[in-house]
């Protein structure tokens, strides 16, 4: 429980720091007073309509990605599983891009998240089909590469066929992943899907624990493999799909966070679920603060920063896995 308290405190502190980070300089006390007051002053508008939704979205997106990563790793019994790496985020992005490009997103506001969700569902199903129930690392990563490549190629095709270069540039920036200029509309759009995803994923804890002993032993302990798979697919797709729909593709959170936290929960998959949700929230909050602090005059993208931090960690993880296998 010490870990839970620590992670909660960390998320709270970073949430506060995120609220106090941004273009408009104001002393913290005044800013927080303006946030609560909502008196229509410019500072109050900035706090309530720009910074608050941004911080809330960082928590939601981070929690979704961290949780989905931990659940996928537990299910596939593989520390290299991650929604971004195995193509789920890429496929969700493809779905979103199609919705933007076809103008569907303008006609019908739910088209963007639903389309991202559909992309994510397709990718998770393909991954589970290709990687097989035993989830060997190599088949999983290869399946992930193939699906990422396919999603990337189809996204490029959409851009390629885009009649308007400005729309294309918009999409490219959107895909880099960012939480800048999001509003409460985005929060309300994503929240129902994410909440559904969280509930589904958190319910898999005990089955994931049982899977530590392999699929056969888990089934003999009363775990229904079909139900677990469906829960996991829908949960991951709905959490990651919604995250991608509002924030673009943000990779490596689901890889790095469970990896860092695993030793602190005694490697138990069920405990890693909530820990990774909190850890993911903290990580995205921190990265989103860094994005605004490091190069405030350039619009540095969250997904870019995440990948810059995550990719070296991923390499380190592969190096360690290789050493353990040798």
């Amino acid at each position: 429980m010490k870990l839970a308290a620590t992670l909660c405190a960390l998320v709270a502190a970073l949430f506060l720091a995120s609220l106090l980070t941004g273009w408009v300089a104001a002393n913290p006390a005044a800013a927080l007073r303006a946030l609560v007051a909502g008196d229509g002053t410019p500072l109050s508008v900035v706090m309530q309509d720009i910074r608050l939704p941004r911080a809330i979205l960082a928590v939601m997106v981070g929690a979704s990605l961290g949780l989905a990563g931990a659940a996928l790793q537990g299910y596939l019994r593989n520390p290299l599983a991650e929604p971004g790496l195995i193509g789920v985020s890429g496929a969700a992005a493809l779905g979103a891009v199609i919705a933007i490009q076809t103008g569907l997103a303008l006609v019908f506001p739910l088209a963007l998240p639903l389309s991202a969700l559909a992309g994510a569902v397709a990718a998770v199903l393909l991954i589970l089909m290709l990687a097989g129930p035993r989830g060997g690392s190599i088949t999983l990563i290869l399946a992930g590469i193939a699906i990422s490549a396919l999603a990337g190629a189809l996204t490029s095709l959409v851009l390629n066929l885009s009649p308007n270069p400005f729309a294309a540039a918009d999409i490219v920036f959107w895909m880099m992943g960012s939480l800048a200029d999001r509003s409460f509309q985005h929060v309300w759009l994503a929240l129902p899907f994410m909440a559904l995803g969280w509930a589904l994923l958190l319910s898999t804890g005990r089955a994931l624990d049982a899977l530590t002993l392999g699929e056969d032993a888990a089934r003999a302990m009363g775990v229904d493999p079909f139900r677990l798979r469906v829960t996991l697919v829908l949960g991951t797709a709905s959490a990651v799909g919604a995250a991608t729909a509002v924030a673009g593709a943000i990779g490596f959170v689901g890889l790095v966070v469970p990896h860092l936290l695993r030793p602190f929960v005694g490697a138990r998959p069920s405990q890693l679920l909530w820990a990774s949700a909190l850890g993911g929230a903290a990580m995205v909050l921190a990265a989103d603060i860094a994005v605004r602090e490091v190069l405030p005059e350039r619009d540095l993208k969250l997904g870019v920063v995440m990948a810059l931090v995550g990719a070296p960690l991923f390499l380190h993880l592969i190096y360690r896995t290789r050493r353990e296998m040798a």
Binding site: R77, L211, T212, L213
Partner: peptide, 8 residues
């Protein structure tokens, strides 16, 4: 089972 899996 015969395969002695301990994943974590």
């Amino acid at each position: 089972p015969q395969s002695r899996e301990i994943a974590w």
